[in-house]
């Protein structure tokens, strides 16, 4: 499902010097697999996930979603590819504070309409019921705990049934119990056929992973 080849990415330091964060990353994740990327803070894990999810452009290399070389697309094409292929789960949840939990979930379908509004709403409600958020649908993010917010974010990430799920430290702001719920949900998505990439510094994230990588010196290593 996801194939990255020779991906490089640098940032410009305030001094003007280039800091190479990704120095030729190769990664392939098939549907049904979970790839877990670990590494110390500042090693470039989030940058890798952003580049893989087309949230920022790489400086070189190729990224493929299925048979489509998405790294070559223009801005609008990348936006459409994100909506069609990718679901994101962020460490800080990134729910919109002005929307209720259910509206946050439905937001995923606003820009990628593939079914009727009624069907999308039914699907969103089902997902929220599955993660135990049925009685919290009308709550705003500020009225939810961190674990609840991440469950809402998970529902948003999977509403469109994306074939690729990218999770950036999804348990970073959660306690162990809530973290376990989210990791279990991610494994469930992999079992359902999605390709899942998780970056995390928590060892428990690697449980059940199909592949485990360590990002060091801008390249992925198998430990």
């Amino acid at each position: 499902m996801l194939r990255a080849a020779s991906v490089v990415k640098s940032y410009r330091a305030p001094s003007g010097a280039a800091i190479r964060v990704l120095a030729g990353v190769d990664l392939t994740v098939k549907g049904g697999e979970i790839a877990v990327v670990t590494g110390p803070s500042g090693s470039g894990k989030s940058t890798l996930l952003n580049v893989l999810g087309l949230l920022e452009d790489s400086d070189g290399g190729e990224i493929w979603f299925e048979d489509s070389r998405v790294s070559a697309l223009g801005r609008a094409g990348k936006s459409r590819a994100r909506g069609r292929y990718v679901g994101f789960l962020f460490q800080s949840f990134l729910l919109l504070p002005s929307l209720t939990a259910l509206e946050n979930v439905l937001l995923a379908a606003r820009y990628v309409r593939r079914a009727s509004a009624g069907a999308i709403r039914r699907r969103a409600v089902e997902l929220m019921q599955e993660v135990g958020m049925a009685d919290r649908m009308d709550h705003f993010p500020a009225q939810l705990s961190g674990g609840e917010q991440q469950r809402v974010a998970f529902c948003r990430a999977v509403l469109n049934d994306p074939p690729l799920l990218l999770a950036d430290e999804p348990t970073g702001n959660l306690d162990d119990a809530n973290g376990a719920v989210i990791l279990a949900a991610l494994r469930g998505r992999a079992r359902a056929g999605a390709a899942v990439v998780v970056v995390s510094h928590r060892p428990e994230a690697a449980v059940g992973a199909s592949a485990l990588y360590r990002l060091r010196g801008g390249v992925l290593e198998t430990p």
Binding site: G53, L55, R75, A76, S79, R80, R82, G83, R84, F88, L94, L96, L107, A108, R110, Y111, V112, R156
Partner: peptide, 11 residues
Amino acid sequence: GVKRALGATDL
């Protein structure tokens, strides 16, 4: 940023 991550185009 979130909306664009969810697939919103500039338009």
